[in-house]
Simulated assay, not measured.
Amino acid sequence: MDIQTLAPTPGKDYPQTWNEFLDWFGTEEACLTYLERLRWSSGFVCPRCGCAGQAYRATRGRLMCPSCQHQSSVTAGTIFDKTRTPLRVWLAAAWYLTNQKQGVSALGLQRVLGLGSYQTAWTMLHRLRRAMVRPGREQLRGLVEVDETYLSITDRQAPISPKGRKSSTSKVLVVMAVEMLEPKGFGRIRLRRIANDCASCVMPFVQEVIEPGAQVRTDGSAAYRSLTELGFIHQRTVMLGSDVPAHVSMAGVHRVAALVQRWILGTHHGSVQPEHLDAYLDEFVFRFNRRTSNSRGLLFYRLLQQAVATAPVTYRDVVRKA
């Protein structure tokens, strides 16, 4: 059974308050035990041979496969792989990240957790953002609006200009897909940075995130001409000369575009390097799609559930230019 379909119990599967969190995760051993239960909810499975069964408890917290004798750890092959940061700090970061409704900046995380460097906090956040994208997640369905928007971001690592400024503001193109609910409201969303608004950039996105046969509403752009041929029901709305304003005829994408821009400018002060924007978009999607959840503890649980199933990423991987 997909672990995402299970219904975790508050107070049993995850803490509900900060005080409960402190009681649950006071030691490294407690953190390891919790992550082990999340990673192997049905029992240990050897990452090398795939054998399922009771593992031998070796030294230094390692688990030994009874079949091939391979030794592994709970954190090996996850975003916590080879980290020097205590797991108590990692779990506290995950709790803080999911309990702040509008998210948290790296500087804010560094201050709250007392981390030694900004780089450590920044890398932790990017690793956790990697875990916010669940492999094999369901495609959008029903009526889906698709459009592009420009986000204004500030690259503080840009070359120094003749006027001496160390940052430059640029506009980055992002394609959006928004589920429209009846009689009103929005469902789930998907966002992605693209190089331009031509068919070769937007159509692969549409095919990946929207279920075949869904009704796709777009503007009059020629980039979406092949939607019908690809098995979608295409609802084309030409904006030029229309009596209906674009924010009314395409309400979903316009609303989401405004929200993500406000989030970038608010939580992150607009300071996001273009090549890292996708990670921030993934976080926004994670938050938006779970906006109706009344339990912050459940978001913490889901994030860690995906963190132990997400491949490791190093600082060099994160800063590598896209």
Rank of each mutant, 00 (worst) to 15 (best):
E20Q: 15
E20L: 07
E20H: 09
F21G: 11
D23T: 13
W24T: 14
W24G: 15
F25D: 14
G26Q: 05
T27D: 15
T27C: 11
T27S: 15
E28G: 11
E28V: 06
E29I: 08
L32N: 10
T33E: 15
T33K: 10
Y34L: 10
Y34C: 14
L35E: 08
L38R: 07
L38E: 09
L38K: 10
L38V: 12
R39N: 07
S41V: 06
G43Q: 11
F44D: 03
F44S: 03
F44L: 07
C46N: 08
C46K: 07
C46V: 11
R48Q: 10
C49I: 13
G50K: 08
C51G: 09
A52S: 12
G53Y: 08
Q54T: 14
A55P: 15
Y56L: 14
Y56I: 13
R57K: 11
A58P: 06
T59V: 09
G61Q: 04
R62T: 14
R62G: 11
L63A: 10
L63K: 12
M64H: 05
M64I: 08
M64V: 13
C65H: 11
S67E: 13
S67L: 12
C68N: 13
C68G: 15
Q69A: 14
H70E: 15
Q71I: 01
S72Q: 02
S72A: 10
S72Y: 02
S72E: 09
S72P: 08
S73E: 06
S73R: 13
V74H: 02
V74A: 03
A76G: 10
A76M: 12
G77D: 00
T78R: 00
T78E: 02
T78C: 01
I79N: 09
I79H: 08
I79W: 01
F80S: 02
F80V: 02
F80P: 01
F80C: 01
D81W: 05
D81F: 02
D81A: 06
D81R: 00
K82W: 00
K82Y: 02
T83Q: 02
T83N: 10
R84Y: 03
T85W: 00
T85Y: 01
L87H: 01
R88I: 14
R88K: 13
W90K: 01
W90E: 01
L91R: 04
A92Y: 03
A92M: 09
A92W: 09
A93W: 00
A93S: 00
A93N: 03
W95D: 09
W95N: 11
L97T: 09
L97M: 14
L97Y: 11
L97S: 02
Q100E: 15
Q100M: 15
K101R: 13
G103D: 06
G103V: 03
G103F: 07
G103L: 03
V104K: 01
V104D: 01
V104R: 04
V104I: 15
S105M: 01
S105L: 05
L107C: 01
L107P: 02
G108H: 05
G108R: 11
L109V: 00
Q110H: 03
R111P: 04
R111D: 05
R111N: 02
V112T: 05
G114I: 05
G114Y: 04
G114M: 00
G116R: 09
G116I: 07
Y118K: 12
Y118V: 11
